[in-house]
């Protein structure tokens, strides 16, 4: 039994909003998942409120965000405050870990933010889908290929603010890629050519670690597309294995 569970527990509501109050049980369930995260104890050890984390935080300069506040909310088990921070603030963190490098307690506010993001996804908090919408193209790429980024994703249309000189030599993209002296990089759809077995092994990791479940929570359509790609690649790999059994029963892999 923790301190927060003994306190009077009126439902939490925003006084200037018509939104339904969040039941205390839901807040506790969220906090329990945070506290049970395997890295929670590694990332938080105490807090003197010195604020050196916030003083060095890049996001604190541009957003209503403070790593000190995140640590304090968790350290004091402020369930309402934690829930509120998980709506928007946790997505402001730039994940540079300057806060962790500076904290005299060896806390990692950046690491705590990652725990909060994982739990926000698990509990399908309203902000998650909105925040991650621009990320869907990247998620598709990384889950299906293991590469976060591909050359054909860097276009002037996708990054107009990068200006007209994204490449300074005017030639078809594939020609420019083949002019890179590393054969693994003569590709457009992935940053380097990815071995078929590599992709298939990665899918096993995603399935075994609940990553696909996370993906389904964030974007059901994307999950369907990813599942189709995974099925195709697995079939391709099985076919290759069948075709390449040698006389010893070994495959040529």
């Amino acid at each position: 039994m923790t301190a927060h569970a003994k306190l009077p527990t009126p439902p939490i509501a925003d006084p200037v909003s018509d939104r339904a109050p969040v039941p205390q049980e839901a807040l506790e369930a969220i906090f329990d998942d945070i506290r049970k995260h395997p890295l929670y104890d590694h990332e938080i050890h105490g807090c003197l409120n010195c604020g050196i984390c916030t003083a060095t935080c890049p996001s604190a300069q541009y957003y209503d965000y403070s790593p000190r506040e995140i640590v304090q909310l968790l350290w004091t088990e402020n369930l309402e405050g934690i829930y509120d921070a998980m709506q928007e603030k946790i997505w402001a963190c730039a994940q540079c870990y300057t806060c962790a490098a500076r904290c005299p307690f060896e806390n990692s506010p950046g690491g705590l933010v990652m725990i909060l993001r994982e739990v926000a996804i698990k509990h399908e908090l309203p902000s998650v889908k909105e925040v991650l919408r621009p990320f869907s193209r990247v998620l598709l790429k990384v889950v299906t290929t293991g590469n976060q980024l591909a050359p054909n994703m860097i276009t002037r249309d996708a990054f107009p603010d990068w200006g007209p000189n994204v490449t300074k030599v005017d030639a078809p993209l594939m020609v420019l890629r083949k002019a890179i002296p590393m054969p693994t990089m003569h590709t457009l759809d992935t940053a380097w050519e990815v071995n078929l077995r590599t992709s298939v092994e990665l899918y096993t990791i995603w399935e075994a670690t609940g990553v696909l479940k996370q993906l389904a929570t964030v974007d059901a359509n994307l999950f369907d597309v990813v599942s189709d790609v995974m099925d195709e690649k697995r079939d391709e790999w099985e076919e290759w294995l069948e075709d390449n059994q040698d006389e010893d029963g070994d495959t040529d892999d």
């Binding site: 996804i121 998650v128 293991g146 054969p183 380097w192 590599t198 609940g210 964030v218």
Partner: peptide
């Protein structure tokens, strides 16, 4: 050796989106 049998660490995605976890990162 520069070869094709390699994934990225997938940590750019994890730090950006929260999709992934310590077990997936460790397995990769």
């Amino acid at each position: 050796l520069d070869e094709t049998d390699q994934t990225s660490c997938t940590a750019w995605n994890y730090h950006g989106s929260g999709i992934g976890n310590v077990v997936s990162l460790a397995a990769v």
